[in-house]
Design a protein around this nucleic acid. Structure first.
Lengths: 234, 234
DNA sequence: TGACCAATGATAGTATAACTACCATTTTTG
DNA sequence: CAAAAATGGTAGTTATACTATCATTGGTCA
């Protein structure tokens, strides 16, 4: 289930962490510590202590913690893309495909390993809290040129394609796709921490996923299936 | 035009920067430097050098750069809320009110001062690139309890109220409001840096605003004015 | 006027983070 | 089995975040 091609983006790591037991141990502790401390408080020194190793060992694998975040992000979106593609293979019709894509974005993350040594839910929590920091940097343009955001861009492109299949005339499929994906990440965060910004009911994990999925459905359907409603606008 | 009540949130600053010439000078240079360097590279030492002062002087006004960002965010959303309220006073009907709110979120920022010593466009660029970092922190809950996110939450609440006025039955007004506000911030960023994630035409500032406004209009109208389209969903 | 006080600013220092050069050990390979 | 390559550990440098303390200025009131 894990192990899709991360090797394509060599710039993500100094040395492939999935290629050695120590590297996988590093990924395990790195994600756990990131989840606990958040990106700002997370340091390579603390990681080294936690995994009972030393700082330079960590630097052997990753240039810095920002590259580590980019690596984890690529792993996450690559995994989501893989789940999307393999799932869509058995599904016919753009509506059912959309349903499945939204399911991937809103349902609880299965307890499998998107990356050796890393549990899905842990990686997902890191993405929710930290992913925007991966691209909100002065280095975006350079890193984008290196192809380090391809994972995310590809996932969004798939969703945009589904939207286009659903409504070929809709002029903003990519904007709608990225807006929906971003909302699927940030709304659960708001639910937990800034509940006034969302309608998801706090402390009701069983119900809020379908609420979120329903909301995203309505956003997509409304935006791209009802052009006549907004035709009076410029 | 500037000078709405920032004093309510005493925790934002150690000493009110708008109360002295030096404090205003600090705000000017702080925003310029933040705009140039981004939050990660921005340090109080560099700010002190830039404004030909010293580090502890800066610390006299702000506890750390995260609090400075919270202060600037509160100033921004407070200003936007003020513009929204004063604008809505002369406007009748939920549709026209929505138009105006989306205008505030998508039109070029006027070259006035939301905060003494700070130009609107500069502060806006900082918000686009840095605002999510204000709440994506392990300290969110504590800072939220201090009321440090009230500015943002209030602006979103106003928009949610407009949406409710427009469509009283719509069950997700707050989610829709925050999603739209977030999109209005991140989509122009994608346009500049990750164009595959948006449909906004690059290097066409004159046109892309109306594109973005049109998109957000369609998202809102579609989501809340066409419940029958999605009634077949769970 | 001048002595005092409060507000403000500058100097110097500590602790931690980010990163690196270098040495020791083990593993691989000819 | 020896040489080389890969891997891990020790120690140190620079920069950042933050603070304790001293100097200065500007205003107030006898």
């Amino acid at each position: 289930m894990d192990g899709f091609n991360l090797a394509l983006h060599q710039g993500l790591y100094v040395k492939d962490p999935t290629g050695s037991a120590l590297g996988i141990k590093l990924l395990t502790h790195a994600t756990q510590l990131l989840d606990e401390l958040g990106l700002e408080q997370f340091t390579f020194r603390k990681l080294a202590e936690r995994m009972e190793s030393t700082e330079p060992t960590v630097y052997r694998y990753f240039e810095n913690k920002h590259r580590l975040l980019l690596y984890l992000s690529t792993a996450w979106w690559g995994w989501q893309e893989m789940r999307l593609i393999s799932g869509l293979a058995h599904i016919d019709g753009p509506q059912a495909k959309l349903d499945y894509a939204l399911h991937l974005l809103t349902a609880p993350i299965p307890d499998t390993t998107p990356l050796p040594g890393v549990q899905g839910p842990v990686l997902h929590r890191i993405m929710v809290a930290e992913f925007p920091k991966a691209y909100l940097t002065k280095g975006v343009d350079a890193e984008n040129q290196e192809g380090l955001f391809l994972g995310y861009k590809r996932f969004c492109s798939h969703l945009a394609q589904i939207i286009t299949d659903l409504s070929p005339e809709f002029p903003f499929p990519r904007m709608l796709a990225s807006t929906v994906v971003e909302a699927s990440i940030v709304q659960p965060y708001f639910q937990r921490h800034l509940p006034r910004l969302t309608d998801l009911t706090p402390d009701d994990p069983g119900c809020s996923e379908t609420q979120l999925a329903t909301f995203l459905q309505r956003v997509i359907h409304g935006a791209c299936l009802s052009p006549q409603l907004t035709s009076h606008l410029k």
